[in-house]
Computed example of a mutant assay.
Amino acid sequence: MQPEFRYEDGKWLPKGHGSLANGVPRSVAGAVSALALSGGYSVRPREGRVVYFGRNRPEVHVCIGEDDRQVSRQQGVLTYQRGHWWLSNTGRRPIRVRRSQWLFANDAAIPLANGFTPLFVPGSGDREHLLEVYVTGPDGSQPLSRHDAETEVPRPHRLTPEERLILIVLGQRYLLHEPNAKPLTWQQAAEQLAELRPAAGWTKRKVEHRVAAVRDRLSRSGVPGLTREEVGEPVGNSLNDNLIKELVRSTTLVPPDLAALDPR
């Protein structure tokens, strides 16, 4: 490790350190910890500080994918600016952040929320390398256990009756719990909708426009992974896959909704 990378209050986390998903010991508010399989690093916040991660162990704070040449020698940087830690991609491969959001090398840095954030760097073949990041909250403590607290009820998204029917048709394989479920194609959805509601004049273009309107509305309300800019090219089924997973996760769509597919 080069001298300029060392901070007096920095702390090395050994290989085999427990997952940051379980929190970190009490620390200064805004401190950041980053951990990979090979070990990690923790440091207090200070304007302009950086934490490097990548494949080249001698020149980064956290070594990730050391034996995988698909990972860049310096894959990314955590930088403390304006009261937040920011994630930048400085490598050749994109970094996957929260669900299906991808951060590319030319993208603007994104702020990291307090608490635990897993980052994934795709490697050779099907390999994917995990970097755990934990930003300490304002009180400097771990999240409190809430064993007796009431469970928060999911908040379904509002859909019109027409939108609901379209999305039940489009996402029926998810509601059927099929492994590796994929959305129906626009043509398949239009054909089934025409059987269910013949008078509505369904075409694949009409289905596509209605679904795009739902994606746009949910994206503007804060749901990630519903725009081309977020998922990157090639888009394929990613946008509809993310949409349907969000609708299922939020209980907007549930398996009993499949009754709507019965023509009777």
Rank of each mutant, 00 (worst) to 15 (best):
Q2K: 13
G10R: 05
K11W: 12
K11D: 12
G16D: 05
G16V: 11
A29R: 07
G30S: 00
S33D: 06
G39L: 04
S42L: 06
R44I: 15
P45G: 08
F53S: 01
C63M: 03
Y80M: 06
N89V: 02
P94M: 04
R96Q: 09
F104C: 05
D107M: 04
P111H: 02
N114L: 10
N114V: 11
T117H: 01
T117G: 11
L119W: 03
D126W: 14
V135T: 11
T136L: 04
D139T: 06
V153Q: 10
H157Y: 07
P161F: 06
V169Q: 02
V169I: 09
R173T: 13
Y174C: 13
A181L: 08
K182R: 13
T185M: 09
Q187F: 13
A189G: 03
E191G: 00
Q192E: 09
A194N: 04
L196V: 07
G201H: 12
E208A: 10
A213E: 07
R215N: 08
D216V: 14
R217K: 14
R217N: 09
R220K: 12
R220M: 07
S221K: 07
G225F: 00
L226T: 05
R228T: 15
E230V: 10
V231P: 00
V231K: 00
G236L: 11
L243E: 01
R249I: 05
R249D: 15
A259Y: 08
L261H: 06
R264D: 07
